[in-house]
Design a binder for these strands. Structure first.
Lengths: 204, 204
DNA sequence: ATAAAAATCGACGTCGTGTAGAGTTTGAGG
DNA sequence: CCTCAAACTCTACACGACGTCGATTTTTAT
């Protein structure tokens, strides 16, 4: 995505364009916090970044490419943090940690996450990114369920299938909660955690 | 939504326009089964309905109004069927019946349901329709949970909040499943049912 | 049969997108 | 310091989709 001229990434000094590129993505993220992505015009983004429409098309081939790059940036951040989290073997701790991480991510990047979900069907690249993320999450949930004693397997009442459904539950619940007040995210998180625990057979 | 000329609904003979209006909605639904709503053009719909763009604007003020009307039609069908379902007091039966009904609805109108969800944020009218539907569903789930012994209340681990999360889980799971093969819906339904039962404390 | 209401059409103005080509700035090497 | 190519920026244009308008034809009621 970095301009049409490859091999610019590893330069000693930071090119002016790198700054612009970041400014474009930052502006886009800021705008997404205000209006829906289809209410945003390329002119808006360019203006916010301090350049003209024409100049923006030097960096990105289209509006979709801009938001795709933004989603990619955010999702990579998410993956990083996932890897950085210490793996605990104890199910209850693992669940609590995962939910806490999720709250933080949605607090920081709610609008981008929502946009990613909205566009994951219409923009294949974003769909790819997001479904991969969902897979990672689902695998993590599956592992916890199995460790807690749920039978492994893909049948409707076994770990894999249940993890999928729980993943969607969390996604959707946070999606809605992140549109409202900040404390809603905490409550939503608690509810999801409770259902997750119950599904794992770990009734408090 | 019936044209710009109100009070046409209750007429002895069916106006030509009523047929056209239905044709437009039917065409729109058919198209939604093929492409995403933003890949559909007003010209496409008009052509499918056998009229020109100009004529379509006699019936609906905009493309959004068309799809809003379509969603309204579908959602009303959904409400009707909900009311028609006999209320059982036995939680297990109630859950099974609700899920069965949901499978049928998504089988028949999957593309419209997905579109409604996609647009419920950007189109306020659709948002209204869908959130009302979700509320009905959530209330029903809440009732079942309480009858099964879950403590009533809105705290994160009480019936209302759990019902909300379960509602989103079902919505999202069906949303994804309905894009794939028909049998996926059945499996998805079984998984949701299992989690619902578990959350209600009704472990098989 | 006729006049009002309903329905249809083609042409037009607007807005947002993406492209093209011309011009300006930057910085590495002579 | 000069030069030249790459990096960057801009204005102008072409296109497609939307929604509007006024003229015209078809239906319907009486």
């Amino acid at each position: 995505m970095p301009g049409h001229h490859p091999a610019r990434s590893r330069r000693p000094t930071e090119r002016k364009g790198d700054v612009r590129e970041r400014a474009i993505l930052d502006t886009c993220e800021a705008l997404l916090a205000q209006k829906g992505h289809d209410a945003i015009t390329v002119g808006d983004i360019a203006e916010g970044a301090g350049i003209t429409r024409g100049a923006l098309y030097f960096y990105f081939g289209s509006k979709q490419e801009v938001v795709t790059a933004l989603v990619a940036r955010t999702v990579e951040h998410l993956w990083e943090r996932s890897r950085a989290t210490a793996k605990t073997d104890e199910p209850r701790q693992a669940i609590a940690a995962a939910m806490q991480r999720t709250v933080e991510l949605w607090n920081e990047h709610g609008p981008v996450m929502r946009t990613a979900i909205d566009l994951s069907l219409t923009v294949p690249e974003i769909g790819e990114l997001w479904s991969h993320t969902a897979d990672l999450f689902t695998e993590a949930i599956t592992a916890v369920l199995e460790r807690a004693g749920v039978q492994a397997g893909t049948e409707p009442d076994q770990a894999s299938a249940m993890a999928r459904a729980l993943c969607w539950m969390i996604e959707r619940t946070f999606y809605h909660a992140s549109q409202e007040a900040r404390e809603k995210l905490q409550k939503a998180s608690s509810t999801c955690e409770h259902i997750w625990l119950t599904s794992a057979g770990l009734t408090a």
